[in-house]
Design a protein around this nucleic acid. Structure first.
Length: 644
DNA sequence: GTAGGGTTAG
């Protein structure tokens, strides 16, 4: 019976099934067996994600827990969003120890120090160091190694090194911890020096060099380490994929992923998460779908992070329906990231009402939204023009959930009022914020001025931005748009000249489109090749048809291009990268297929009009993901209802 | 029966 229960417990992947085992244990009386109970507790606090509350309740019902049980719970908390609970449990344990014989051991300190590292509390870490000393455990190899990591995480690499230097016989794991601590402190040279002087290196040593370089953005070194590695384990592959994803090298992510499969290796969940994240960022819908197929076939549907990234991938590739399907059918337990990803997806697509609805569903499911959740919630309200609801959510965040608004939340509120045209309220809101406004806040207001054509306020705001010395090329573009809309061409010219004088270059706009699982990238004004020629030819044909059949008139004013001469304006607008990408899609994709474009900047008004017309004249659906949100064009109108 | 160093999602 014992063996059977343990076997069944090990098969449990979700809390639901654990519940059955729990019931079974109670029935058979095995629940009070310390060994069995310990296993159950371990399963809930360590093996299955998001079941710590359950573990805590189990623990509270158990009389006289032993060290193993305390350690298990402390470990569970150490990896949770509230690692402080590990310390509370330890305090409880010490209190109990005056009645029973439960005393902390090296495991206890390893987990506690990990908790301190995870919430970055140097003070707690040092106190634990002292406690370990009192119990004579500070010289323990494992405790020492965790101390090195803890001090590294808490920003005291010098302490890490001190612990390391005093170690009698550091093994490779301790060496690795020291290398990592140096990377954490941003000291690449020390990391390299330690790495070179290691008496023995294992694959982890190599893997952490790779990750360290990746975090520092040293991609050349990342590639060098990866190619020099003699043994590549699955962490090496997933670290490489993650490194490339985090540094925006999406083409390489796809090719490394294919290399991995070509070698007959099985990708792990981290690699899958990485590839899916790359698909999400690059907008590679077809490739993402193939990876999704692999996930289902290979039994990765149980992994929360994979499901969450699938939600993000489908949303960012323009398919919210699929994202929803993943959310609704995922076999893994939904966590806060799952809900927030979906909310963010809906928000990007301008589905404000559905965001509010989903927030309620989330709350009903017992998962509390956090500060990150509220960013897309408020964003959705501002972009869908839901002023009242936005206001309510903002209050709810503060009053119900006790979340202190961060600058991002304030930014959304400024956008909420500004976008709706209440510029005065937006400005007043900024003035009464308890935190000083940053460049993003002012830029948001400048954007609102540009939408609503308020020249005076725009000038004031631009002044604020200049005071902060944080102007970017986009600000000049916004300001000149305001002047252009107001017909103040002299001012447009002044802005244009000050840009040239200060050598401020406009960020080049690019757009990507996926055809047969290959991503093509278009940049306005780039030199021609076969691909761009094909796009230009098709574009000319499309524009002609739009003028004749759609009554298209180029809209150059709202999307002013102050770095070109007047007569070139129409021509330049025509060449915007999103138009090229759409044209390429029209030329290459079969009729009836959705054309999906990803763009690095915000779509301009003229392109927006053109997309609407194409969707009507050619009866094709176009989905454009711009820097901020999605636009779905169908039958001549856009999902953003021209509110963006 | 737990460990220490390396890769993941909003």
């Amino acid at each position: 019976m014992n063996q059977l229960c343990l076997y069944l417990l090990n098969q449990c992947k979700t809390l639901r099934t654990v519940d059955h085992i729990h019931a079974c244990l109670l029935k058979t009386g095995l629940f009070s067996d310390p060994f069995i109970f310990g296993k159950l507790l371990h399963h809930c606090s360590v093996t299955i994600s998001d079941s710590l509350d359950y573990a805590t309740r189990l623990f509270l019902h158990y009389p006289n827990p032993n060290v193993f049980m305390y350690n298990t719970l402390i470990r569970g908390f150490s990896e949770s969003p509230r690692p402080q609970n590990s310390i509370t449990t330890f305090i409880e344990m010490r209190r109990e120890s005056s009645f029973s014989s439960v005393a902390p051991d090296s495991f206890t300190f390893a987990f506690l120090l990990k908790a301190a590292a995870n919430y970055g509390s140097l003070m707690t870490g040092m106190q634990l160091h002292c406690q370990a000393l009192l119990h004579g455990l500070d010289g323990h190899l494992f405790v020492g190694t965790t101390l090195i990591s803890m001090y590294g995480e808490c920003g005291r690499v010098d302490f890490s090194m001190k612990v390391f230097d005093e170690m009698l016989e550091p093994n490779v794991i301790a060496w690795n911890a020291a290398v990592t601590a140096c990377f954490r402190g941003g000291d690449l040279e020390s990391s390299e020096r330690l790495f070179e002087s290691m008496p023995f290196k294992d694959s982890t040593s190599w893997n952490l060099m790779l990750a360290g370089y990746a975090k520092a953005g040293e991609m050349e070194m990342v590639r060098k380490v990866f190619s020099e590695m003699e043994v590549k384990d699955d962490v090496s592959w997933s670290s490489m994929i993650t490194a490339l994803t985090q540094n925006g090298c999406f083409d390489e992510v796809f090719s490394v992923f294919m290399d991995l499969q070509r070698l007959g290796l099985r990708p792990n969940e981290v690699s899958l998460t990485g590839v899916l994240s790359a698909c999400a960022q690059a907008g590679a819908f077809e490739f993402g779908r193939v990876v999704h197929g692999f996930v289902e076939k290979s039994g990765f549907s149980w992994i929360i992070s994979v499901n969450n990234t699938l939600i993000d991938m489908y949303s960012k590739c323009g398919n919210v329906a699929m994202a929803r399907l993943v959310l609704e059918t995922m076999p893994a337990m939904k966590n806060i990231v799952s809900w927030t990803s979906m909310i963010a997806g809906l928000a990007m697509h301008g589905h404000g009402e559905e965001v509010i609805q989903l927030l309620h569903e989330m709350e009903e499911s017992g998962i509390k939204p956090d500060r990150i959740t509220f960013v897309p919630v408020l964003y959705a309200c501002s972009h869908a023009g839901l002023i009242e609801q936005g206001h309510e959510c903002f209050s709810k965040m503060k009053n119900v959930y006790n979340i202190e608004p961060a600058i991002e939340h304030y930014g959304c509120m400024v956008d909420l009022y500004g976008r709706a045209g209440d510029l005065r309220k937006a400005y007043e809101f900024i003035c009464q914020m308890p935190v000083p406004p940053n460049d993003i806040i002012w830029r948001t207001l400048l954007g609102a001025c540009s939408i609503h054509g308020n020249v005076e306020l725009a000038e004031q705001v631009k002044e604020k931005l200049s005071e902060l010395c944080l102007t970017d090329s986009g600000d000049y573009v916004l300001l000149s748009n305001v002047y252009a809309v107001a017909g103040k061409w002299n001012n447009v010219e002044t802005v244009r000249r000050s840009m040239t004088n200060q050598r401020i270059k406009k960020t080049p706009g690019w757009s990507m489109i996926e055809v047969d699982k290959i991503m093509y990238r278009f940049v306005a004004g780039e030199k021609q090749n076969n691909i761009t020629k094909e796009a230009y030819d098709k574009l000319r044909e499309i524009m002609l048809k739009l003028k004749v059949e759609g009554g298209y008139v180029p809209e150059v004013v709202g999307s002013v291009l102050h770095d070109v001469e007047d007569e070139e304006k129409e021509d330049s607008v025509t060449k915007h990268s999103e138009k090229l990408a759409v044209a390429f899609g029209m030329a290459r994709l079969c009729k009836g297929r959705v054309i999906r474009i990803v763009k690095n900047l915000r779509i301009c008004r003229d392109c927006h009009t053109v997309m609407k017309l194409i969707s009507k004249v050619y009866q094709s659906e176009i989905v454009v993901r711009d820097r901020s949100r999605f636009h779905s064009f169908k039958d001549g109108s856009c999902s953003c209802r021209d509110y963006w």
